[in-house]
Design a protein around this nucleic acid. Structure first.
Lengths: 282, 282
DNA sequence: TGCGGCGATACCCTCACGGTATCGGTCATG
DNA sequence: CATGACCGATACCGTGAGGGTATCGCCGCA
C-alpha cells in the first residue's frame, strides 16, 4: 500500500464526501473515486458504503482510518527526524520541545534552566502549541520532546516520565456567586446556564456545537471570563497566571492532571535524555 | 514520501549494496540508484556515503533506516488490521495470538482455557514463533496479541500487562561437571570452551559468527545439548520440558525474565481485552 | 596494465495517475 | 410528477514517473 493511497483514503474517510476530499487533496473527483475503489479491490475489502446520497465507513474502513492515520504519522516522522538528524550532524544541534501555551510556565522555566546549566547542553527550541497539538508534533517528528497532560493527551506509543500531578480549579470572573465558595463539585460548574463552557476548535479547525463562546487562545479565554461569558477548568498551577479580576476555586472531584515529559521510543538523542533527566531532577 | 521510496531505501541501507538491494527488490540497479538519489534530493539530505568501493550510512541515513522500518511496519499493520476487521465483521471473528514456540506452555494453556470458558469468547489462532518473531507479527498487524519476554523483546509502543517474572537456568547435558552445582554465576557458563552458546539466525536469516552450533528450533537445541555440544540459558519455567538427559541449574545473577501479554495501543477489539483480563486472572 | 566490481548516466518505453466530459441514480421542490 | 441539483462512477485521453538495457567512469587488484 502506498502512502498516496492512504492519504486519499484518510481524506475521504474524514470528509465522508468524495468531492470535498478531492478538493482538499488538490485533485479532481474521478481519479479519487478510482483510487479508492482500486485500493478496496487490492485489499479485497469494502472500506466505504456508498449509500446513495451519503458515504459511510465500514468496520474495516474505520480500522484503516485509525491505523492509517498512525501509519501516515510514522512516515512523516521518519522524514522529519531524518532531516533533523542531518541538521544536527552538520550545523549546531538543537532539540525541539513542544509544550502547551500558557501551561505550568514555572515548571518549564525550571526545566530549561536546569538543562541549560548542564555541560554539553544544546539549544532548545520551545514550541508553544494549542491544546493537543504537542502530541501531533511529537507523533510526526516535528518535535523531539513534549510536555503532555494525562488524561487529556494520548500517551500511547511514547516513552514518558511523570513530572507533576495536581488537582483542577475553576477559573471564574470576580464577583460571581460561586467565588464565595472554598471548593466546588464538578457537576456544579459544567452545566451553569450563565457561564457555559467554552468551545475549542477540533483538529479540523471547526468548532463543536454548543452554547459556549468560541476561543483559540488562553488570553482570549481569560478575557471572556473577565467579561462573565464563560468559565474554565484548568490544572492548579494555572493559578499563577491569574489577573485581579479572576478567581480560582478548587474542584474536588475533577480528575487529577498529570504533567509528563514524553519522547518517541528509540530516541537516540543524548540531548533528549539529558533534558528528561534535568526534568526529573526538577 | 511514498512507501515505495522507503522500501527502496531500507533495502539499500540494510544491504549497503545497490546491486544486491535491487535484486532483493526485484528491480534493476539503475532505477534504484535513481530513486535513492531522488529521495535524497527531495529530502535535501545525504542518506548514504558512496565511498568508492563501499556504501555507508550517514547520520541521517541511520535515523531514516530506524524510523522508516517502523513506518513501514505501521503501514503494513494498517493493511493487515483492516483486512482482519473485514473478516471479523463478516465471518466468524477470531484473535491471533503470537507466542514463542516452546515457552511457558503451562501459562499459555491456562490462559486459553480461562478465556475459552468466558461467555462471548472467540476462536484463538495460536501462532508459534521463533525467537523475537512475535514482536514483528504484532508490529505488522499479523497478530492481535502476543506473549513477549522482557528484556529480550522490545515492548516500546505496545500496551502490556505483566504475567510472570522468573529467574533463568542453564540447561546442561546430564553428567557435565557443572551439573553437580546447585547454582551458577552467569560468567561461569557464557564462555565455556567445551559448551559454546548456540547461534540463532538473525532477522535476515544469516547466522552470526562464533564457535557454537547453529540451531533453528528448541527441539534441535535440546538434542544438541544432549549430545554435549552446547548449553542453553532459559527462563525457569522451561524446566517443565526437560527430558531425562538434561539438567537445569539456576543462574543466580542472570537478568530476570518477565513474561508479558502485549497488544497494539488503541486496540478496539473486545476479544483482545477479554483475553488480557483472562490472562491477569491467571 | 588489464580485468572485474560497482554505482552513475544516457536513453527508451510503458502504464499508472491525473484531467475533462458525461452518465446514472436519488432527493428536493414547485 | 417533472425537473434540477447533487454526487459518485465510468469512459476516454495525455503526460510523466518509474522501470528496463546499454554503457560509462572510477577504483582496487592481480
Amino acid at each position: 500500500m502506498e502512502t498516496r493511497e492512504l492519504r486519499y483514503f484518510v481524506a475521504v474517510a474524514e470528509e465522508l464526501h468524495f468531492g470535498r476530499a478531492a478538493q482538499r487533496l488538490g485533485i479532481a473527483q474521478p481519479p479519487l473515486s478510482r483510487a479508492i475503489s482500486q485500493l478496496e479491490r487490492r485489499l479485497g475489502v469494502a472500506l466505504l458504503k456508498r449509500d446513495s446520497r451519503s458515504v459511510t465507513l465500514t468496520e474495516a474502513g474505520a480500522v484503516l482510518l485509525r491505523e492509517g492515520r498512525a501509519a501516515l504519522d510514522a512516515v512523516e516522522a521518519a522524514e522529519h527526524r531524518a532531516r533533523r538528524a542531518a541538521l544536527a550532524a552538520t550545523g549546531r544541534p538543537s532539540v525541539v520541545l513542544a509544550t502547551k501555551a500558557g501551561a505550568s510556565s514555572e515548571l518549564l522555566a525550571k526545566l530549561l534552566h536546569a538543562y541549560a546549566a548542564e555541560s554539553g547542553s544544546v539549544d532548545v527550541d520551545v514550541v508553544l502549541c494549542g491544546p493537543g497539538e504537542q502530541e501531533r508534533l511529537l507523533r510526526t517528528g516535528r518535535a523531539d520532546v513534549a510536555i503532555l497532560h494525562h488524561p487529556f493527551d494520548d500517551l500511547t506509543g511514547f516513552d514518558t516520565e511523570e513530572l507533576l500531578t495536581e488537582g483542577q480549579v475553576a477559573i471564574l470572573p470576580a464577583g460571581h456567586p460561586l467565588t464565595t465558595r472554598t471548593s466546588l463539585q464538578l457537576s456544579e460548574v459544567t452545566e451553569l446556564p450563565d457561564l457555559p463552557l467554552p468551545r475549542w476548535p477540533a483538529n479540523d479547525g471547526t468548532y463543536p456545537d454548543g452554547p459556549g463562546p468560541e476561543a483559540q487562545s488562553h488570553s482570549q479565554l481569560f478575557q471572556l471570563i473577565s467579561l462573565g461569558r464563560t468559565l474554565l477548568i484548568v490544572p492548579d498551577s494555572a493559578r499563577s497566571q491569574l489577573t485581579h479580576d479572576l478567581v480560582a476555586v478548587p474542584i474536588v472531584d475533577a480528575p487529577e492532571v498529570t504533567t509528563v515529559i514524553a519522547w518517541p521510543p528509540h530516541s537516540r538523542s543524548r540531548a533528549v535524555a539529558d533534558l528528561v533527566r534535568a526534568a526529573l531532577r526538577r
